[in-house]
Amino acid sequence: MRSLWKSICVYAFLVVGGLISIYPLVYMFMTALKPMTLLFEFPPRFLPSEMTLSNFRNAWVSQNFALYLFNSVLVTIASFGLIFLFSSMLAFAYSRFDFKGKKLSFTILMGGLVIPSLTLLIPQFVLIRQLGMFDSRWGLIVIYTAGAIPFTTFMLKGFFDSISRDIDESVEMEGGNAWTLFSSIILPLSKPAFVPATIFNALTVWEEFPWALTIINDPAKRTLPIALANFQGQYTTQWGIVFAGSLIAILPIILLFLLLQRYFIAGITAGAVKG
């Protein structure tokens, strides 16, 4: 009986926590469905008596919203491609090779996890300007890639360490080299580890605001966070349109998580125990 009540309390707590977490999203959706005339009705209604999709249409056609969405998709995909390339090779090197300065270099790399990104804004600005990447998408991609490498390397190394070293010996006996082990064995076995890395990095790049605001002046190169900030400034009182634009912006991330959710928990815990 005690275990039954304990289970009931746990599930009740999870249900309440889930409802609290999802309430802002549901409220945004309901507000986005309200026509302008019902936004400030009193007493307010959670379920609108009249619904419309005009807010979503207006959000999509205003301020080149589709172009900003394309820029965010492009920057996110390019950044993750480079993050995947460099972080996987770094994690493999730290997991499988012994070299001078290995512990020190890994400690320095992990030190990047504790440095607030805003403190690096000015040095990054000077560097990107000297590289000729100011006011370009590459200026975003390079910094996003560099910022995500420490965390992604840490996650992948934990998973690589859990893969038995006997596989290394088998590959060597078959005449394979380190590249064969990395590309043909380690990477295919590490697919679960890339799922949480994909979600975390995609979310970080997708919603990043300060750096994009700092180096992008050309309206044609703006990403969604900047567009939404300007969008909200234009429609200060038209919250239906503001919320509709915000929902469109977060939809790709929600879809990505829904597609990968069954691998998410497995990927988080995959490298927790070294085998």
Rank of each mutant, 00 (worst) to 15 (best):
S3L: 15
L4V: 13
S7I: 14
A12V: 08
A12H: 02
A12F: 06
G18R: 08
L19Y: 13
L19H: 13
A32E: 01
K34V: 13
F42K: 15
S49G: 12
E50F: 14
L53F: 13
N55E: 01
R57M: 14
F65I: 09
F65L: 07
N71M: 00
V75T: 15
T76W: 02
L85S: 10
S87N: 04
Y94L: 07
D98E: 15
G101V: 05
K102H: 02
K102P: 00
K102M: 04
L104I: 11
T107L: 15
V114L: 13
P116D: 05
S117N: 13
L120Q: 02
L120S: 10
G132F: 12
M133Q: 08
T145R: 00
G147W: 10
G147N: 04
A148N: 10
M155W: 03
F160Q: 09
S162R: 02
S162K: 03
G175N: 02
W179H: 13
L181F: 10
F182W: 11
P188R: 11
F194N: 03
I199W: 01
A202I: 06
A202M: 12
W206Q: 05
E207G: 14
T214W: 12
T223P: 07
A227E: 11
A229F: 13
N230S: 14
Q232E: 12
G233Y: 05
Y235M: 00
W239Y: 10
V242M: 07
G245D: 03
S246I: 10
I250M: 09
A270D: 04
